[in-house]
Write a protein that binds this DNA or RNA. Sequence first.
RNA 1: GGCCCGUUGGUCAAGCGGCUAAGACAUCGCCCUCUCACGGCGAAAACGGGAGUUCGAUUCUCCCACGGGUCACCA
Length: 549
Amino acid sequence: MDNNYLADLLYPNIHTLPEDMEARYPKRQLPEGAKVTRFAPSPTGFLHLGNLYGAFTDERLAHTSGGVFYLRIEDTDAKRTVPNGVELIIDTLAKLGVNFDEGAIKNGEDKGAYGPYRQSERAEIYQTYAKQLIREGKAYPCFCTEEEIAAMREKQEALKLTPGYYGEYAVWRDAPIEKIEEKLNAGVPFVLRFRSEGSIENKMKFNDQIKGEINVTENDIDHVILKSDGIPTYHFAHAVDDHLMGTTHVVRDESWLSTLPFHIQLFKALGFKLPKYCHTAQVMKLDNGNKRKISKRKDPEFAATFYHEQGYPAAVTREYLITLLNSNFEEWRIANPTAPIEDFKFTTKKMSVSGSLFDMDKLNDISKNVISRMTAEEVYENVLAWAKDFDADFADKLTVDADMAIAALSIGRGGAKPRKDIARWNEVQSYMGFLWDEYFSIIDEIPDKFDKADIKAALNKYLEIYSEEDDQISWFDKIKALASELGYAPETKLYKKNPEEYKGHVGDISMFLRIAVTGKASSPDMYEIMRILGADRVKARITAYAETI
RNA sequence: GGCCCGUUGGUCAAGCGGCUAAGACAUCGCCCUCUCACGGCGAAAACGGGAGUUCGAUUCUCCCACGGGUCACCA
């Protein structure tokens, strides 16, 4: 068969040659060791933790080596593409502190010399290489319908054979040109298949940057490389794009391991140099006691936007994912609590080979630490920004009473042992909502073991002795005196030594006041809170509460 | 089912032929303490199983079990 004739027959509108493409996309001039990586998602309108895991790896690999990190949009499947998918990807990553050097940007535009960066706009490029493969006898058209393929598959499964388009099942592999022309003239759509010369008898070793040495078997299936609409499948686009765009390191999750042999084959057939591969472990979730790869459909809590909605600071998601990514990050972070994350020496050598379960406790811990290092003003700005999107009423209150909010957020902040109350911005309202009369309510109750008369007496006497002028020491001395007067130990230690001598201790008296003033049995420093609330509101709350006893 | 990958405490994990098998989170106890949070001290908690190689295996090899992934004109 005349392959040149067939090539022109199939793709008559393609007049470019691989050489033209090579000239259009010259090799990148980068320093020795510089890595070129890409984040290549489908614009499905959803980014999950697994995507971020890969994106962070890509970003660190490129930027710690003086390389390039770019965004390529894999929108070859029109069915899965959503209108603002690209914008969502860019915005989400930008919020998390991940920025691209080149690639797709908003409004359908590109930045960089290796575009277009949307695969849907690269049809001519793919077809140029595909046409060359046809000329070389390495690809051929297949006119099977979906039904025929499905029937073939069923038959193979019934015979317990490996399903797929190969061997005797590759019915169009050696079809005569007349038959092809006949279908073509009848307007029957076709896909272009790669002519595999591989055999499953051939095993080989492959070195993955993360997994190390792995065993692979040659591919013997004639996979589709161009779909009937002339748009490539992932595999073909991967080979062509990563070659032309100069990708040195392909980071993707380990589910791609199974198609790696096919990719190796494609690169070879196209005469491309194989990039390094980094197959990452997957982030898992526990589902009914079983580990499972997280899924975009079933697990909304793994949407990248979920953490934003919950009010986790952007840096936290990144920090957490890097603890999963590089096992020595945590120790580095303990040694360098305030260093920018960029200073950490990221390496694929330290990447985990097995999938890890997402741990919300750990995320919360990291978040508390990150937030505890912020100034009150920073916390305020963050909470306000979050509330504007998710709690408008709280945002209004924060805006009106900014000074009060910042003062409250300052309690126990700074210094070597800062408070760590807040893990997410959506907790702040309940943490300090009592500052506003509209949010204030009595939530906790005083245990029944305390005598009602004592409680009432304590509250009323406190009203008499409370003075805004007191410093913290004299303020507390007054409470101690009050405790003694009512038969409560003025020191906790005294009570512990001889509990039978007292009705309770100064801590209990404080609790009465705390519940009256904040509505809760636990709160940050009471002295500070009373000062922030002001004498009038403190007294009003105590008076009101005393009446309910 | 075929093929591929994985398996150290509840979770994340160090380890890379000889260790009382790190550390972090979570849990529990004690201390500090007006509550809480912080902090300090401590406890409990692990090499999936079986062969082999070796003077010696968590570490190397094989088998098994279990877990995961993948078998599309989806990526």
